[in-house]
Design a protein around this nucleic acid. Structure first.
Lengths: 251, 251
DNA sequence: CGAAACGTTGAATGGTTTCAACAAGAGTGG
DNA sequence: CCACTCTTGTTGAAACCATTCAACGTTTCG
């Protein structure tokens, strides 16, 4: 149960060099109380009250919402270094479930933990708020995709975004990445039927754009995908938290 | 330019009684520097950097995202008491534009303003974070609608949600409300064509569910709409910010 | 008055879903 | 070890929901 020198989370927060060495230690300390979760055993259950948040250390998780009619919408796919369910610390009921896509490890974070870290370092506070804001921007962009892109563009955009995010986390590049999502996951994320996901992937493959096979995405024509999807990664704000005076004073 | 005894914003934050009298004054002070905006003159421009946030005092605004191909997706409709573009204070570039649907008044909030308020009262901080979290939940629910509901359910859900939110703001009830949205706005919000919006509204009218006409929504069969839409207002968390010790210490 | 914005409707087209069926691999229990 | 089931992937055909194209009516406003 040893803590790696730099976990995905602190690497992400410190990406732009905004954290001191002491801040990094603080961030690592947030990740004690680590737990393992098996596929399908939710970290957070939709509708439950007073749940914790988590920092995802290894593995993939999806946040989703179930409807009465049984259909499911995946709101976001979370990868190592991402925070899960930060809202749970502020709202009474968890509106989203958090389900492991692979076996995973996550560190539980309670309100008090975070409060301590915020109190000790305004830079950590700004970094966490930055991460939360970026996650929100990702969800907005996802919403745009569901509303205004067809199946192929939606798929391309989703897989491109995931690639960039994995790249930030030090996994994967412009050639591709390992991807444990099933076509059913893609269907629930993209608001499509699994059957149409299959067809769409076939089309992208036949057009020489990308190959999704055996748990791996490989981009064949990165520029072609970008223009098909209208992908502009600006919203992923990879430069990390901004460090101007007003925000340093927030805490 | 006088400040009303209790603006929509402080009424919203104080809904559950979590703020002291001093807190209320603090919140009102956030809303000095008030400005008026005409229809279509954006408060915040998509893609611009270092913009302010705003507190909407009167009128309606939509936050939207434009794509390269010219299509637009409205991410959320904002009503009096809502905060616009809180992300702008944390991220470098504004990923969303903010456009007035009606003439409106909004108070500009800069990072420093908010920082001061946060520093002076942890209750105000918790309340603002609560509002931000609730807004996020609204966007998630909207995403579910785009992914997993057909046009009629999407429309019904959207109009029901808006009704509840307006109700919290002291405008409108289970019978209906005044609604300045055009069918084009609805189309951009719901990811439909304006033509199909028209047909969908006709269908809802002919089935005796609701009438959208002359800038007003009137619900004819509230229960019928709820079951058509699968509407469960839990995510709107009307009880206001939770007030437990850990969050009081966040700041 | 003319133009622009908004609303309305029909018909043709097309993207996506549903239904139905089958194949391959992993895991399970007998 | 084999038979069995479950999960995942794959494909075709029919049905459907929503879009596009085209046209027209109404109101507002300069």
């Amino acid at each position: 149960m040893e803590v790696p020198a730099a976990s995905a989370f602190s690497r992400k927060l410190g990406a732009a060099g905004g954290l001191t060495e002491a801040d990094r230690v603080l961030v690592e300390r947030l990740q004690h109380r680590r737990r393992s979760f098996a596929i399908g055993r939710d970290l957070v259950h939709q509708g439950r009250t007073n749940q914790s948040a988590f920092i995802l250390v290894t593995g993939w998780v999806c946040s989703y919402k179930l409807q009465n009619d049984g259909s499911r919408q995946i709101v976001d796919v979370r990868i190592p270094g991402d925070v899960l369910g930060l809202r749970n610390l502020v709202l009474r009921t968890c509106d989203l479930g958090q389900e492991p896509i692979t076996p995973c490890e996550a560190a539980e974070v309670q309100g008090a933990d975070l409060a301590d870290a915020f109190a000790q370092s305004p830079r950590v506070a700004a970094a966490v708020l930055w991460a939360a804001a970026r996650d929100e921007a990702v969800v907005s962009e996802h919403l745009v995709g569901l509303g205004r892109r067809d199946a192929a563009a939606r798929m391309a955009h989703f897989l491109l975004e995931l690639g960039v995010r994995l790249g930030f986390a030090g996994i994967g590049d412009a050639k591709g990445y390992d991807c444990p999502l099933t076509q059913y996951h893609l269907a629930d994320a993209l608001g499509l039927s699994a059957i149409h996901v299959n067809r769409t992937l076939r089309m992208l493959r036949e057009q020489g754009l990308l190959v999704f096979r055996d748990g791996a995405v490989s981009f064949q024509d990165y520029q072609g995908l970008i223009s098909l999807a209208g992908f502009d990664p600006a919203y992923l704000d990879h430069r990390g938290p901004e460090r101007h005076a007003s925000l340093r004073d927030v805490v």
